[in-house]
Write a protein that binds this DNA or RNA. Sequence first.
DNA 1: TGGGTGGGCGCG
DNA 2: AAAGCGCGCCCACCCA
Length: 554
Amino acid sequence: MEIVVAEESDGVRLTVLTDGVAPAASLVPTEELPARVAELEAASHPRWVWSDTAATYARLLRAGVRVERCFDLRLCRTILRRALDAPPPSDLWDGAEEPEDRPDAPPTLFATFTLPAEEVLAERLRQREAVAASAQRGRLATLLAAESAGALIAAEMRHDGLPWSRAAHDRLLTEALGPRPLPGARPPVLEALAEEVRTTLAAPALNPDSGPALLRALHGAGIAVQTTRKWELEHVDHPVVAPLLEYKRLARLHSANGWAWAEEWVRPGPTGAGRERFHPDYVPGGVVTGRWATRGGGALQLPKQVRGAVVADPGWRLVVADVAQLEPRVLAAMARDEAMARAARGGDLYQGLVDQGVIETRAQAKVAMLGALYGATTGPAGELAPRLLRAFPRATAVVEGAAMRGEVGGTVRTWLGRTSPLPPPEWKAVQDRQHEGGATDEDRRRARRLARDWGRFTRNFVVQGTAAEWALCWLADLRARLRVLGGDGGAGRSPHLVFFLHDEVIVHTPAALAEEVAEAVRESAAGAGRLLFGDFPVDFPLDVSLVDTYADAT
DNA sequence: TGGGTGGGCGCG
DNA sequence: AAAGCGCGCCCACCCA
């Protein structure tokens, strides 16, 4: 059973869709929605259909109501319109996809945009028909369900937040930077390093935050670097290098994850004093490949430097799990490459390549494999590419084929059917120009370069995108298992997901359940592999840590 | 004064 | 010794 949720001016319209029965609509006053949803959820576990999980579900969560399943029409529409030749038509929904394009839209309590109930219902039916008519309806349906589950999880993780200790964070900052300065000022340690850089370079007025000024000062001191980048400076032998690199490291800590950041993004938690939460704003489907993005807070870039501030509540633990070499494993499975799956059998795919005699050292194996996924053509990765081609012709054919399609302006699909965008019109114009009469060598070089750039994008798209699908299925299955483990306790008493980083999750759990959670995380990973790839024999081994702070995870 | 851009660096 | 994918965010800097 599905229930379609749509805001109208006089309340929220709920439309019950049951197979073989006419849709039944009812109007609920906006303030009574959470109670009504809770009631219907308990009675019939419907799939809730709405246009925007981020808006609607956030409101339910604030009222203490959680649901098991949903269908996010906006996210699914984005997938379908690229995946299908004939995207579902509706001008209304084009506005809905990009609320930021409608700055005049009136703010509402309920959603970033509103549509009449008939239109929401019609969109649901169009999408259902579009999937049913697709040649890959099974995979596409799995993808839409996974994307929607991800939307629920993102909203819940944002609501619950990542357990954070401002005290631990402040200790860590004070140790590295000295006491907190007044707003706008440099912390003492940073100012001392800046002064050391100025003295060493004999540039008394230098602001080391200014790239051009820093480069001039370096040149003035006889240091012949092209840029001020860390990796270039690391190879320079000069007394300024050490303090300058230390300055850069700490300046970034201060600006990106310092005291001001904490004030904006960390808030008191629900369960008592001293238990705070970092509330990142996840954006499911925010990356073309299907990965999540974040908007504000930079949750997906949480530096290792500050992970000591992620601390479980007293009596609770963190279960931290990440997948070892997810992308090459996914490639082996989608290519049905038995030899590569064999090399991936243990916990370390790169060592597996060495053990199979494909490549001599683990370091080389990693470089070669990443090069294959990203499309490296030169350097060590390029030189090792023939080894991979010989050992794993099927896997190589998948990424090479994807690259070739991209180079000619075509699209590619992930395992479940997420489809890459077409290159922009300028790209096509450049490709056309190289064949015209007056085309110069420069035109042709430019066209070749852009073609290869797009080929590297589509090459990586199929692997990164399928890995993102695997991760979504892993998360969704884990969420279901945690709901069973925790009973109906909600985030206050039950294990719940608090962090997700492409191939890594953190569950915050009562200490007594930590072992069971760790087992659930492993079972979900195996389940995700089976759901996507059936009985193809590829492992997805996890590193799982039971810890009090994220910094202690391996 | 505010918006847009590029360098640099954090994450996978 | 360096190149090859996807992001977000901060700062300086440029321009209107």
